[in-house]
Design a protein around this nucleic acid. Structure first.
Length: 726
DNA sequence: TTGTTCCAGCTTTTT
DNA sequence: GCTGGAACAA
């Protein structure tokens, strides 16, 4: 046994964490401080030094990517397969447990997973059935409510008798939703976790089996765990002495999705014999970048407290560019990328990070204009595309006729003459009899209760599914998928000329066949289910990114949320404006604002060598031009770390009287306004102090001026603002 | 029943 | 500015 390879690459704090005795351990790992490394080395340490068997290791993450990376690195260090370890996402592990114990969890053997889109569709349908106006009660809100309750381990019957008016409004829908899922044999994401929690809670023998099996429990990104995930861990570790959690409260950015940052704050109290180790040495970023990050996050009040440091030199200052518009901002960024590439650097090392997806457009446009290869993350994922979901819905119907969500989706896709009226009738019957749509359809056909045309069309559809099922029953998965796509008419449907991007859709369908061909059953899955069911679950649980271009040399575009866990040599943090980042909805809520600040901290710490921060004075928002001002986060950064980059094309520097005269006379006519103010004029505002007029727009009532004050520029309506010309 | 046009609405999204 | 859904006409 060679322990040097396990501990040699570690610094003191990391080594202390890895070699600590078995107990409750909280590793507070700052950005770039080697948290995955600590987890990986800890697992290998437990096996090679403490002699634990791989089966006794449980390691949970939030993303498939993180789980795969961890498994790979463990295998590397261990130099053997880690396939007998349970390393996976919370949802993946829940799924595996439920397959194993479907009966005790009161689930059908071949239950399927409903992703959040499916869930929303189902809720919409229920709202329609209950004649509730979608405008009055948006499906999204109901979905949010249901998931929130499930995350708190509350089923609809727990809420019966609840006096809260808001709760009563949702209760009926929640009940219908539960019943519908039950009938269809499907579980949504929250349900996966809740079922496992109930399985453990109600079946002592099963719980004990896993308590004994998992002698060491490892949790990644602990700050993102929700109530249910935490409850799970508590059940699995009754003595609270064998749990090794890694997290960073400063990077908790999923509170809006139910993550409970309190889980990490309260760890000390809930795990009395715990040890906390802080990893504060950062191996990623330059000194200047780290100082900025520390500075920002220090403004948050509720923190466990950590300060990153580095051996690396300060490096370049952070460049700040105040653009005139979103277009100007994009041009600037793309121009900087161009020189970066000209200096011989790679595009893959560059990331443009923004707060909301809509911001990517301007950058894409400029990148396209300059023919710079780029890749936008977080768009539609492969398994989320409509054509793929349709194909999967057919396959799901083959596996389970009573899957209402799938039935609903493809009964008339491609169109085959089954219209709203017929479907309405189906729903009514299904509702009143509490049966599946499939059964309702059978009944209506048998009893000849439908007009001829509709009845025939519906019969044709049921027959199609039965035929497909019979025909493909014995075929390998890939061929099954192939035949279903062909015979369902989907291939022909998407092949029509009038379908937009038809070539791409056909490609995707082919790719699905390909994926099915390559799909291998989980060797460890001892559950007795078909390959098809397993493939369908895989599609729901691992909605993999579209694979293409991954290895090309492209500039990376993504939201700040997506960027968590990644690093780039060169980072552009764009759109640092109040209302955008921090987002408008967060500005007046102290808690939300702190989460936004953590997001900013995450963004800054993605950069290794050089960070650019940009903001624009106006931008197109929802197709409308909107003025914007510098983000409070940008103003929180100390000026000695920053280097203001002056805009090139228009007046921006405060000018002396001499130079201002000069520049005004040289301005094109249309820019010389009739108003009492002029470009370059020095003015005084009663609260903002002295400033210089940089830009004018509009006239009369709509006239506004962009004025640069000592610490900020703002647009002011000249008619309504008292300005004294100096 | 199907295809078109018009209108409201809009963060972030691991599973 | 783009999307999804509802209200229309064919």
């Amino acid at each position: 046994m060679d322990i040097t390879s396990i501990i040699a690459p570690l610094n003191d704090a990391q080594r202390e964490a890895v070699t600590a005795p078995s107990q409750a351990m909280l590793i507070l790992a700052g950005a770039g401080s080697g948290k995955t490394r600590v987890l990986v080395h800890r697992i290998v340490w437990q096996i090679q030094v403490n002699g634990l068997s791989p089966q006794s290791i449980l390691a949970v993450t939030f993303t498939n990517k993180a789980a795969n990376e961890m498994r790979g690195r463990v295998e590397n260090l261990l130099d053997s397969s880690a396939s007998s370890m349970w390393i996976g996402t919370f949802h993946g592990i829940a799924h595996r447990l439920l397959r194993r114990h479907a009966e005790q969890a009161r689930l059908p053997k071949d239950f399927q997973v409903l992703d959040s889109n499916d869930q929303q569709r189902l809720i919409k349908r229920i709202l329609a059935d209950l004649k509730i106006d979608d405008k009055e009660l948006p499906a999204k809100e109901v979905q949010w409510f249901i998931n929130e309750k499930k995350d708190a381990a509350l089923r609809s019957f727990h809420l019966v008798g609840n006096e809260d008016k808001n709760t009563r409004r949702f209760l009926r829908i929640y009940q219908e939703y539960e019943a519908s899922c039950e009938r269809s044999g499907v579980v949504d994401f929250s349900e996966l976790l809740l079922r496992v929690y109930e399985l453990f809670r109600d079946n002592d023998n099963i719980l004990q089996q896993y308590q004994q099996r998992f002698s060491q429990i490892h949790v990644d990104e602990f700050q993102d765990t929700n109530h249910l995930q935490y409850a799970w861990l508590t059940l699995l570790s009754p003595n609270r002495d064998n749990i090794f959690v890694v997290g960073d409260d400063d990077q908790a950015i999923y509170g809006w999705r139910g993550a409970k940052i309190e889980n990490i704050y309260n760890f000390k109290d809930h795990y009395p014999t715990h040890q906390t180790i802080k990893l504060e040495q950062n191996y990623r970023s330059s000194g200047a970048i780290l100082k900025a990050a520390n500075h920002i996050i220090a403004n948050n009040k509720s923190r466990l407290g950590k300060e990153l440091w580095t051996d690396l030199p300060d490096g370049e200052k952070i460049s700040v560019y105040g653009a005139f518009s979103d277009v100007d901002e994009a041009k600037y960024v793309v121009d900087r990328i161009r020189s970066w590439v000209e200096e011989g650097n790679k595009r893959v090392d560059v990331a443009i990070l923004y707060r909301s997806n809509a911001q990517s457009r301007q950058f894409e446009e400029q990148l396209m204009l300059t023919k710079t290869p780029y890749r936008v993350y977080g768009g539609l994922r492969f398994f989320d595309r409509a054509e793929i979901k349709n194909a999967l819905a057919y396959l799901r119907l083959l596996a389970n006729r009573h899957d209402d969500a799938s039935f609903d989706r493809v009964v008339n896709t491609p169109t085959r003459g089954i219209g709203l009226k017929t479907i309405d009738e189906l729903r009514q019957l299904a509702n009143s009899q509490q049966i599946s749509l499939w059964m309702a359809a059978q009944f209506l056909i048998e009893q000849k209760l439908l007009p001829n045309r509709a009845g025939n069309a519906l019969f044709y559809f049921l027959d199609l599914i039965e035929q497909l099922a019979a025909k493909t029953a014995e075929l390998p998965l890939g061929e099954k998928v192939q035949i279903v796509i062909e015979n369902s008419g989907l291939m022909a449907f998407y092949g029509q000329d009038k379908v937009e991007k038809s070539a791409e859709k056909i490609e995707n369908l082919k790719e699905l066949v390909n994926a099915a061909n390559l799909f291998k059953m989980d060797v460890n899955s001892d559950a007795d289910i078909s390959e098809l069911s397993e493939f369908l679950s895989h599609a729901a649980l691992e909605s993999a990114e579209s694979q293409a271009n991954e290895f090309d040399d492209c500039v990376q575009l993504m939201t700040l949320h997506t960027a968590k866990g990644l690093e780039f040599r060169l980072v552009f943090l764009v759109g640092l404006e109040d209302g955008l980042f921090p987002s408008q909805q967060s500005i007046y809520d102290a808690g939300k604002l702190e989460e936004e600040r953590r997001l900013c901290y995450v963004g800054i710490t993605r950069a290794r060598e050089k960070l650019y921060i940009t903001h624009a004075e106006k931008r197109l928002l929802y197709g409308r031009e909107t003025p914007a001002s510098k983000s409070r986060f940008l103003r929180e950064l100390p000026s000695e770390l920053l280097e203001e980059v002056r805009p090139k094309r228009e007046v921006s520097r405060p000018m002396t009287a001499k130079s201002s005269n000069f520049s005004i006379t040289n301005l094109p006519k249309e820019m010389q306004s009739e108003s009492s103010y002029r470009l370059g004029q020095r003015v005084e505002h009663e609260s903002f102090g002295a400033g210089v007029i940089l830009k004018m727009e509009g006239e009369g009532k709509t006239e506004r001026a962009l004025i640069k004050f000592s610490d900020d520029s703002r647009w002011l309506m000249t008619l309504y603002t008292k300005l004294h010309v100096i």
